[in-house]
């Protein structure tokens, strides 16, 4: 797979990074990512994945754009209110980078469709806003052996971790007890500042690009906690949990990417 002249120009400022290479760029072009949720985290995450040249991006979101979303979801503009988020995001991202194949999935992620949607992807970026969906995405990504970037943001604090199923701790290894529904406020009920979500979603894109290219060191077996109030960060070590119902039985994924 070779890069066209316009691709070389489009990606020139990353192609000149000492850490990057034509090979890394071609790996991205061959790669497929699924972004679950294209709201506060998914807007920046999907934007940077598309801009960087990930070949195929599937966008899963069943919601419509609401006025109260716009302060933190920069892919959606005021005239988009009422439209489907997945399709709106795909349109915007196709303007940004027509080289990318965009696949909107205007559906809610359920136990019945999660496996088929993530299967075959090279990375899943979980930008969902509920614990139920987060565990579902974790379990489906583990079952399909797909690398995953998990994150959450609430108010001014956020966390991010990356997962290679079968090789590093999954979300359920780190947080084995699912909070009962309603016990933790989702960002629907609690406040969140758009700029903070933008930082966390951008870190998710960075992690996904690292997982796809092999550049750098993803947050495997590590959880980054970031406090936007003072911008202090903490990294907490995690490890695989024997008997984890999500990932204990997953064979280590091939060392392909």
């Amino acid at each position: 797979m070779t890069l066209s002249d316009s691709e070389l120009e489009r990606y020139s400022r990353q192609l000149v990074m000492p850490e990057w290479s034509g090979e890394a760029q071609e790996r991205l072009k061959r790669a497929s990512a699924i972004v679950v949720g294209v709201g506060a985290l998914g807007s920046p995450a999907a934007t940077y994945l598309a801009a960087a040249g990930v070949g195929r991006i599937g966008i899963v979101d069943s919601d419509a754009v609401e006025l109260s979303n716009l302060h933190r979801q920069p892919l959606h503009y005021t005239p988009d209110v009422g439209g489907a988020k997945a399709e709106n995001a795909a349109v915007k991202l196709s303007f940004l980078n027509p080289e990318v194949q965009l696949e909107p999935y205007p559906v809610r992620l359920e136990p019945t469709n999660a496996g088929p949607i993530v299967a075959g992807a090279d990375v899943v970026v979980d930008c969902s806003d509920s614990f139920a969906t987060r565990y579902l995405v974790n379990d489906a990504s583990c079952a399909e052996g797909v690398a995953l970037v998990e994150a959450g943001v609430l108010g001014l604090s956020g966390l991010v971790t990356s997962i290679r199923p079968g090789r590093s701790a999954c979300y359920r290894c780190a947080f084995p007890v699912e909070p009962p529904e309603g016990s933790v406020p989702s960002c629907r009920e609690a406040g969140v500042l758009g700029a903070m979500a933008g930082i966390v979603g951008s870190i998710q894109a960075l992690e996904a690009l690292k997982l796809l290219t092999g550049v750098g060191e993803p947050l495997l077996d590590r959880i980054l906690q970031l406090d936007g109030a003072d911008l202090r960060q903490t990294i907490v070590a995690t490890e695989r949990r024997a008997g984890c119902p999500a990932c204990a039985a997953v064979p280590a994924a091939a060392e392909s990417r």
Binding site: E9, L15, V16, G22, E23
Partner: peptide, 14 residues
């Protein structure tokens, strides 16, 4: 610049 270096780097990769 920097397209000349982009092209030189790609050639060096080979």
């Amino acid at each position: 610049c920097p397209m000349n270096w982009v092209r030189a780097r790609l050639a060096l990769e080979g």
